[in-house]
Design a protein around this nucleic acid. Structure first.
Lengths: 251, 251
DNA sequence: CGCAGATTTGAATGCAATCAACACTGGTGG
DNA sequence: CCACCAGTGTTGATTGCATTCAAATCTGCG
């Protein structure tokens, strides 16, 4: 694993935009607040698929925003088995909690070629102190994060493999739509079955067979790494999916 | 289920103390801040084992603190199956996140006879606005909450039944010790095997057999509803338990 | 082409679920 | 006082979902 391409330059506009768009899904900002957020000092870095963005146990002084691509947070057991805790898309602030907790109790890995932006905790805390709405928005972002973990707990603890996979696909579709990265002919989902296995608590073999069944049943289809939902109602039904836990305004 | 005994009187001192002691496990307060926290208007209520303290989907204007007894947060599936998301002991602020998220995306149930204290969101937000340390402490509390969910995700997704039960017992022991409710001869754990099943994503039958094995292997023993850890090292080893995720100062 | 990573398939095994009783406990009421 | 009952814990037998192990395609790419 050759380290990231780390460019200590001012961030391109799009980086702040991705974060802002995401925060605006649940919070309204004034013009000033938007400007403050966009003016935060940002460094960006690129990672290749399979790179580790943050290592478990690291002490952190900055949080990272996923600007482009797919990433996952994970924990590993001494025996090497891995559990993916969450999947992330553009705009996600993946370790905002480290702003307060300061030590990474889990790792973050790139699933595809990825671009991330770093925000120092110092700058975030400063903006939070000066603008209560920003503080509240960041807090809310971490709370939604927690809400998603709770849903995943239900997913892994009580749904069977079929329902579990269906639920994961529902979640990804809704997330991709929220940030306008889903199209009529499906959404990109460049995640290997081994990674899906780590995310669902299953094995790759079983993920494979379950995905086959979802296709055979006409709920989804795939083309390359894109997923197309063929029958949303049936998928939602199979998953017992209720998007409330995502706390998105438009859902 | 007959409603709670809801007494709209000033809270007895012990209620605020329980919360304060818990917050002080990770945050240092000045005398003033402590006084502000203890002076928050509190109403308390009692519930019997099996009562529902908060219903899934409720709109919330106050958060509750568990003062005495055991409680659990849970989600249910349309088919009636239930997943317990977390177990709580004295001092836990079980739905602090509702302060910002405002709708209960899960329920809270009493596992034993229970005493809770209600804090209005208005009062909490006011105290947060005036004392940044309090705001930070409450945020940290919700972040630790999220950290525990992540560990449970690993627990349920990747550990087998034996390791999973062992991990749950390790967590409870550490939590009970942190609030000084554990003694030499064990700690109270009045949770039925059906509830343990809902917490671990197993069935009651399998929980029963797994607990038997933990006893037979000499890792734990039980007396009534008390649990005594007979071999902590072996238990930690079986669970691959690392208390970092609890973010307690003394561990 | 040749190789590595990813997907797919097959067969055998096993962990945990399911179904069904039975035992034990504490509380209730006749 | 004891019969009764509900909830909890325990045990046995059976089933099945998911794992494990192994190997055969498939795909992209240098």
């Amino acid at each position: 694993m050759h380290g990231p391409t780390d460019r200590m330059t001012r961030t391109p506009l799009a980086a702040g935009e991705a974060m802002l768009r995401k925060l605006q899904l649940h919070t309204s900002f004034t013009k000033t607040e938007r400007q403050v957020l966009l003016a935060l000092p940002m460094n960006h870095a690129y990672f290749a698929a399979r790179d580790t963005i943050v290592h478990e146990g690291d002490a952190l002084t900055r949080s990272c925003v996923l600007v482009d691509g797919f990433a996952a947070r994970f924990k590993t057991l001494p025996d090497g088995s891995r559990q993916i805790l969450s999947l992330h898309t553009a705009g996600d602030m993946m370790d905002l909690h480290s702003m307060v907790l300061e030590v990474a109790d889990h790792g973050i890995a790139a699933l595809s070629h990825v671009r991330v932006t770093y925000l120092t905790h110092a700058a975030l805390l400063d903006a939070s102190d000066r603008y209560p709405v920003i503080a509240r928005a960041l807090w809310r972002e971490t709370l939604i994060d927690g809400s998603v973990f709770r849903e995943w707990l239900l997913n892994i603890g009580r749904r069977d493999a079929y329902s579990r996979m269906a639920h994961l696909i529902c979640e990804m579709k809704v997330k991709m739509e929220a940030i306008r990265l889903a199209r009529e002919d499906g959404f990109p989902f460049p995640v290997t079955q081994a990674e899906l296995a780590d995310a669902t608590g299953l094995t790759t073999v079983h993920v494979n067979r379950t995905m086959q069944r979802l296709r055979r049943d006409g709920l989804i289809s795939t083309r390359g790494t894109d997923v197309l939902v063929e029958d949303w109602d049936a998928l939602v039904d199979a998953a017992a999916f209720d998007p409330t836990y995502l706390h998105l305004r438009n859902h």
